[in-house]
């Protein structure tokens, strides 16, 4: 059957039943497809965080030197973390309101390990800008916490969203007290 004009692939389908020898053709193509798919994964997975990036996932911070009413910003995983030593007044105001009324209901005490020390990620939950309110003299917004200037989201003294487009409260990163004055984030 030395024919060139007809399509041999098509005639096989129409002409005769696939037999064992046709099976091997299909199996070979299938095997090629499986092999091809297998090499795609490493090419994609290389974009996930590398081992050294994952290993740097914790930061130790000395919080003993933050004066009452002051705040510091530290870096964790390339993002700012706000650490505020809250005044008694700020703590009181954070607890004064009924959390059920909030957009993202959360009690203040579930957001802190020690009431005077608030640790939150300094990343607005709307679209990722860094809110103002860390430095003295910066706008803190109408709830005296932080204020995101990008799209106008004010946060309160517990870092909870009160108004504006942001959907959730400022995230509290995992952290633990290594000693009285030192925390480890991550």
């Amino acid at each position: 059957m030395a024919n060139t004009n007809s399509k041999p692939g098509a005639s096989d389908v129409d002409g005769h039943e696939p037999d064992r020898r046709d099976f091997i053709v299909v199996a070979t193509y299938a095997m090629g497809a499986v092999g091809g798919a297998a090499v795609v994964w490493p090419l994609i997975d290389q974009m996930n965080p590398a081992a050294d990036t994952l290993a740097l996932a914790s930061t130790e911070v000395d919080v003993s030197k933050i004066a009452e009413g002051q705040a510091i910003t530290v870096t964790w995983r390339g993002k700012p973390v706000f650490i505020r030593h809250r005044t008694a007044d700020e703590i009181m105001r954070a607890n004064a309101i009924d959390s059920a009324e909030l957009r993202d209901p959360e009690e203040d005490e579930t957001r802190v390990q020690k009431p005077e020390l608030l640790v939150v990620l300094g990343v607005c939950t709307h679209l990722g800008c860094v809110p103002l309110g860390q430095k003295t003299g910066e706008v803190k917004g109408e709830y005296d916490g932080w204020f995101c200037p990008c799209h106008g989201s004010p946060y309160d003294t517990s870092g909870r969203i009160r108004k504006g487009p942001a959907p959730t409260n400022l995230e509290v990163p995992p952290y633990s007290f290594l000693s009285d004055g030192v925390i480890r984030i991550g």
């Binding site: 994964w41 490493p42 090419l43 997975d45 290389q46 996930n48 590398a50 081992a51 050294d52 990036t53």
Partner: peptide
């Protein structure tokens, strides 16, 4: 994953070989 700078090129290749997922294979 590569850094084209004389201070980092060699190190970035080693990072590919050691830390990047499947980097050694690629």
């Amino acid at each position: 994953n590569y850094t084209a700078h004389i201070d980092h090129a060699f190190g970035s290749v080693e990072r590919i070989m050691r830390d990047v997922n499947h980097g050694w294979l690629i």
